[in-house]
Design a protein around this nucleic acid. Structure first.
Length: 877
RNA sequence: GGGCGCCUAGCUCAGUUGGUUAGAGCGCUGCCUUCACACGGCAGAGGUCACAGGUUCGAAUCCUGUGGCGCCCACCA
């Protein structure tokens, strides 16, 4: 006997252990069965999982579990990501808090030990959480981006790209984070609109201080690094300055006036100071005109010796001081408000500083060509489709990808420099001696790779590449890549580029991008806002099944998904509903051990047919990644059809007794199929209940490997489906009639039903007489063609039938009157429209037959209803 | 500045090539302590599909424009 409720706390971990014990989730590299593979987007080892991870876990588990039940050789690879900057920052922060030390106090080696310790702890937590979510991962293949095998793949990839000239080292201006002490890729810089000032500064002509031009800038501190002032060649205001030099204010340095069409004469003052060392655009102009580059700042963005008297000041302080000095020397013309976009570090929100340095880059535009082609040719489908446009837009404008980072935590760049001749060696393993001068002292590049470089190889590196492993042969290309759209460029695009380049094959054929998790008001969840809904806490209290069902129910093709505790709670009610329906069915049919389905019974025929419909819907929806539709379809079937109607229809003492005696198994078998259908969504409760089912495939130890339901063509009974639909409609209409007359459901009424569409309908309804009487709480029920006199009966027309109810059994009718008058108005209007349509020649000649028939049918129906309403109102009056 | 998307019931969202009466869940209202479940049952109210034009026999759906909202990319100092 099952307890009153499914208590997640008591059951979930036990059930998960049961799955693990029987090793049900392993991918078989030697299997001949069709494969279905997903690599789980590896969470950062920075802490704990949030709702977004819970969503990923849920959706991927649904896909994987269903395919596993369908007999696919499934593999779902779990793993974690070292997450370069993010993790290093967390550990640095802790180190400072706990030991008051910086990473430099420890040194590279000791610091990395600390990070590894942190990683071990964090990974353990994350794995526990993935298990708690019920994820059917193949734990034997657990991977980490810094595992030796993955690192080998990373070095191999770098090596191959370098040899093809697709990885190169270049001196370029990149964004530097003075807090993280590393360069960032374009994607890691977020621009924010910030109010600032526009300062107009005098640059005096060399040799004639009375002459000057005015330059406008938002960053006066960078004037120390100016190496030119540019004006538009056609700008006549400055023609007197052509070919001359001006003095950089405050420092006694002459710089040339250069002419460049890049300058917009209409913007600012039309004269532009050029600081190639600290502005990306100036850098390009400087390169074109061969201007010297002055690097003004150190790694902390503090001004260095190049800044002369300003050395030692931060960017911010230098600005203040320089402005003071400009005023003092009468060089500041004016100051105006100016809002502009300033780049911030994606990780730590520090204002970035453009800086010139030597870095490693990937020629992304080369790799993008194929990556664009495969999506154009639909070899890779992106769902929802509108993301394809965004993908193309980005890929077609892609720029070199800066992959070196000045961090300690990550894949060391596989490049060695000869200490003697500085020759560059790129290799998978450390070379022993210099290929140029045979010198044996080689120094490895200090930098590490962008964390996304290793993530970009994830589908192949976790399967053993560059080895031609059995795993790679069996499981690659993988099937679907499921993740949030926020990392489409960071991750998905790079996997496509690198996967194709390294293997010649696409890494997956489908990309499914799920919505972003928001709080119930649509706000981004964040710790500082305090609106974080913790998936583990929710699943502890309300159950993992409820959380998972909620997440799939809300996984529609939008951009935001709002998570509220209320929503999860209503899913918990659904868990409870299935649990109790199962209790009821087991209570009565628990000892029915063999399949014995009475297919002559109309109610059975109906529920089996309905079951086929929901199977169809669920399978179709999941094939199209429409999780919300699948979840809704099962919810509706279980609750509204199986519980509200099927169980209610068989619930009478006699019917139940009869079925039990006959050991009729429909109730139990339909439920069992529903459990299998639902299992990918709610693995725990369905496993528990499935184990209780007396009739099922006992050769399968767990529902997770039982067959996923498919349509049973031998159990299609459209006639019964239609008949029961009529019965249901009639019962609903009787109840509604009772409702508007404010009759207590307990009061039984007498009723006569008269068909409006012919005798066949009555004949069809007659066999269900007792059923209808019971379910609709009707004392006397007759099916008659006869019309009752209005002195004694009220007649109500509802669709295909006319109900006659003895007047004395009905209560107050005033409310009813108003309601019916309104109804009459509406129906008359509708009737008019239908009539107009049918008179319209063009409609009659061009509308599809089905539509015309529908309108015709509707018109007849409306006519009938309007007439009935008129009569009804007359009767009452 | 460039691109993408959204606006449907109080809320969150479905609505697949234009076609019969625009749906669901939650919430709301009324009634019901019915023996699986009050985490329940039954019934009900609630929408001129953002707005304005256009195409069409017919538009939530297609086109144009307007308004509002959101996201992504770029970063003219």
């Amino acid at each position: 006997m099952l307890e009153n409720q499914f208590v997640p706390k008591d059951h979930e971990s036990q059930i998960y252990e049961f799955w693990l014990k029987h090793d049900l989730f392993k991918g078989d590299a030697n299997s001949k069965a069709p494969t279905y593979t997903i690599v789980f987007p590896p969470p950062n080892v920075t802490g704990v999982l949030h709702m977004g991870h819970a969503l990923t876990c849920t959706l991927e588990d649904i896909l994987i579990r269903r395919k596993r039940m369908q007999g696919f050789n499934t593999l779902w690879i779990p793993g974690t990501d070292h997450a370069g900057i993010a993790t290093q920052m967390v550990v640095e922060r802790n180190l400072m808090k706990e030991e008051k030390k910086s990473r430099h106090d420890l040194g590279r080696e000791k610091f990395l030990e600390k990070v590894w310790e942190w990683k071990a702890k964090s990974q353990e937590t994350i794995i526990g959480q993935m298990k708690k979510m019920g994820g059917s991962f193949d734990w034997s293949r657990l991977a980490f981006t810094l595992d030796e095998s993955v690192s080998l793949a990373v070095r191999e990839c770098f090596f191959r790209l370098y040899n093809e000239g697709l990885v190169f080292r270049d001196t370029a201006i990149t964004q530097w984070c003075p807090r993280c002490h590393t360069v960032l890729s374009d994607l890691e810089v977020k621009f924010k609109e910030t109010p600032g000032k526009f300062w107009h500064i005098k640059y005096r002509l060399k040799g004639d201080p009375s002459q000057y031009l005015v330059v406008a800038t938002t960053r006066p501190e960078t004037l120390l690094g100016d190496t030119a002032v540019a004006v538009h060649p056609d700008d006549e205001r400055f023609s007197a300055f052509h070919g001359k030099e001006v003095m950089v204010p405050l420092v006694a340095r002459a710089v040339p006036i250069i002419l460049d069409g890049y300058v917009d004469p209409a913007f600012g003052t039309g004269a532009l100071k050029i600081t190639p060392g600290h502005d990306p655009n100036d850098y390009l102009v400087g390169k074109k005109h061969n201007l010297p580059i002055i690097n003004l700042m150190d790694k902390n963005a503090v001004l260095n010796q190049e800044a002369g008297p300003y050395q030692g000041l931060t960017r911010e302080k230098a600005r203040v001081k320089i402005l003071e000095d400009l005023i003092e020397h009468d060089l500041l013309v004016k100051e105006e408000d100016h809002t502009h976009n300033i780049g911030h570090c994606d990780r730590c929100n520090t204002v970035v500083e453009p800086k010139v340095s030597a870095q490693w880059f990937v020629k992304a535009e080369e790799l993008a060509k194929e990556a664009i082609r495969v999506v154009e040719k639909k070899e890779i489908k992106i769902i929802p489709e509108e993301w394809e446009k965004t993908y193309f837009e980005w890929m077609r404008n892609i720029r070199p990808w800066c992959i070196s980072r000045q961090l300690w935590w990550g894949h060391r760049i596989p490049v060695w420099y000869c200490e003697k001749c500085e020759a560059v060696h790129v290799a998978v393993t450390a070379p022993i001696s210099c290929t140029q001068c045979k010198h044996t002292q080689l120094r490895q590049d200090e930098d590490v790779l962008d964390t996304w470089f290793s993530s970009g190889l994830w589908p192949i590196s976790t399967l053993g590449w560059p080895q031609q492993s059995q795993d790679l042969k069996t499981f690659y290309p993988t099937s679907v890549l499921e993740t949030g759209f926020d990392i489409l460029f960071f991750w998905v695009a790079r996997m496509i580029m690198l996967g194709i380049k390294m293997t010649g094959k696409i890494p997956f054929d489908t990309v499914y991008l799920h919505p972003m998790v928001r709080d119930e008001h649509g706000q981004k969840m964040s710790k500082t806002k305090g609106n974080v809904v913790d998936p583990l806490e929710i699943s502890d209290r309300l159950g993992t099944d409820a959380l998972r069902f909620f997440l799939s129910w809300n996984a529609f093709h939008g951009r935001d998904m709002r998570v509220s505790e209320e929503g999860v709670e209503s899913c918990k009610f659904f868990v409870n509903k299935i649990w109790n329906a199962s209790r009821f069915v087991l209570m009565h049919f628990g000892d029915v051990k063999e399949s014995n389905v009475d297919l002559s019974n109309e109610v059975n025929r109906w529920i089996w047919t309905r079951l086929n419909r929901v199977k169809e819907e669920v399978n179709r929806s999941l094939e199209n990644y429409r999780f919300f539709e699948a979840a809704q379809a099962i919810y509706h079937f279980v609750w509204s059809e199986y519980c509200d109607w099927f169980i209610e229809l068989i619930k009478s003492k006699e019917e139940l007794e009869f079925r039990k005696q006959a050991k009729e198994s429909t109730a139990i078998e339909v439920l069992e199929e529903a459990l299998r259908l639902l299992h990918p969504f709610m693995p725990f409760v369905t496993e528990k209940l499935w184990q209780e089912m007396p009739i099922r495939d006992h050769s399968k130890i767990s529902v997770s490997i039982a067959a996923y339901p498919i349509v049973d063509n031998t159990r299609e009974f459209p006639k019964a489906e239609e008949r029961l639909a009529r019965v249901i409609r009639l019962v609903e209409q009787i109840r509604a009639t009772r409702g508007v007359h404010q009759l207590s459901p307990a009061v039984e009424i007498s009723l006569s039903v008269n068909s409006l569409v012919g005798d066949d309908l009555l004949n069809e309804l007659i066999p269900f007489k007792e059923l209808i009487k019971r379910v609709a709480k009707v004392k006397e029920l007759t099916f008659e063609k006869k019309e009752y006199p209005k002195e004694t009966h009220i007649s109500v027309v509802t669709g295909e039938v006319k109900l006659f109810i003895p007047k004395e059994e009905l209560g107050d009718l005033t409310q009813e009157l108003t309601r019916k008058r309104k109804e009459l108005e509406d129906k008359t209007e509708q009737l008019k429209r239908a009539d107009e349509k049918l008179r319209n020649e063009k409609f009659m000649s061009s509308a599809p037959q089905a539509v015309k028939e529908g309108v015709q049918k509707r018109k007849v129906e409306l006519k009938r209803e309007v007439d009935a309403l008129l009569q009804y109102l007359e009767d009452l009056a």
